[in-house]
Amino acid sequence: MVVQDLAQLEGFTTQCMGNGSQQIQDAYTGDLLSDVMGNAPAESVLITIQAHKNTVAVASLAGIRALVICNNRSIPSDMLQAAEDEEIAIFTTAETQFEASCRIAAALGRINAGKA
């Protein structure tokens, strides 16, 4: 799928679209940025509650193309600005990281990934 497909997912609100036509191949869930940095795959979407400017920096450096901020956490304006500068998409949702991850796994066609 591509970045803008995330906007269509139920309960997701677009805060910033980044580059909507970029491919999303994979996803990673985590709140510890260093863990994200070391383990998140490139061309991915990050599911997190870490609504902070540094999340955008990590995303940009690790090749993450979109952030899904869970639990209705609000996005600070400097984070939004950084995301616009770096062309990283941000979506917010009321769902937990687990719920949002399941939704994205389904959208990526990875719901059976555990078996593979």
Binding site: D31, L32, L33, S34, D35, M37, G38, Q50, H52, N54, T55
Partner: peptide, 15 residues
């Protein structure tokens, strides 16, 4: 609370 201090910094660099 800022998302740092996971204890992965230097291990990540080394890897």
């Amino acid at each position: 609370s800022l998302g740092f201090g996971a204890g992965m910094g230097l291990p990540n660099v080394r890897s």
